[in-house]
């Protein structure tokens, strides 16, 4: 009795992913041996391929925990998280959430946020190309209409708000030598690629609250209220011009979608 093609491929895939399962039926060698080492080459390829891809997408996370710890953490993630598509460039979007719930990494509370910066960085890198909104266009809007406007996020824009100096830690690990982190405080970073280079910019708390709202599509008025609540010294004009100048938006929409 032989299995059908689909059935045998299912059995092969299952044994590939679960080392606890017996080797699939029907595999052999020129000597007629059922060879666990040969099947292990495939098992190993699957995990090495996926963990290598994660290592390339999360180089700072890997550096922070060391190659050995990272390999174990990535392998545990890969066991339950297979790429949904063959687009390995997008693999690991939810790796930061996994790290946050991974008990052996619990002592490094900032680690998930550093990984979130790395997700935002690679998303920005591969995002659609678009010209950022010109600051002059904002300046041309009548002041009384500003609060009703909302902004279209640039395809590359991402915001990571952390209770830790995640941005400083990320930046400190970009070169060969690691710069010391002198001040331990909450940080927010905007990740954006207005042209060909991904940029990481630190935002003060009010601007971060403002940007978070705008990237979700709220009106400028609503975003400003949240920003003032987060930081009484929030400066609406400089925050708006600053974020637009960084390339965080690609267009604006006036009230009811019509320009004044």
């Amino acid at each position: 009795m032989t299995m059908g093609f689909n059935e045998s491929q299912s059995a092969f895939a299952a044994a590939l992913l679960d080392p606890g399962l017996p080797l699939p039926q029907g595999i052999t060698t020129a000597r007629g041996v059922t060879d666990p080492l040969r099947f292990a080459v495939y098992r190993n390829n699957v995990y090495v391929g996926l963990t290598t891809a994660l290592g390339q997408r999360f180089p700072v996370t890997k550096r922070l925990v060391g190659s050995e710890f990272f390999a174990g953490m990535a392998r545990t993630y890969a066991a339950d998280h297979k790429p949904a598509t063959p687009l390995i460039i997008h693999y690991g979007d939810d790796f930061p959430d996994f790290i946050a719930a991974f008990p052996p990494a619990a002592s490094l509370a900032y680690l998930p946020d550093v990984a979130r910066i790395e997700v935002a960085w690679t998303r920005a890198y591969h995002a659609a190309d678009r010209l950022p909104l010109d600051v002059a266009k904002i300046a041309a809007v009548p002041p009384e209409r500003i609060a009703e406007m909302s902004l279209v996020p640039h395809p590359s824009a991402g915001l990571v708000r952390s209770d830790f100096p995640a941005g400083t830690i990320w930046s400190a690990h970009q070169g060969e030598a690691v710069a010391p982190v002198t001040e331990w405080r909450a940080e927010a970073v905007l990740v954006v690629r207005p042209a060909m280079h991904v940029e990481i910019r630190f935002l003060p708390p009010g601007d971060a609250a403002f940007a978070a709202c705008l990237l979700e599509g709220t009106t400028l008025g609503t975003a400003a209220q949240k920003a003032f609540a987060a930081a009484p010294d929030f400066d609406f004009g400089s925050a708006l011009i600053g974020l637009v100048g960084l390339g965080a938006f690609s267009a604006f929409e006036a009230f009811e979608g019509k320009l004044p």
Partner: peptide
Amino acid sequence: HDTGFLNDLL
């Protein structure tokens, strides 16, 4: 396969 992309040429 049904489990997703296995990232190897099987």
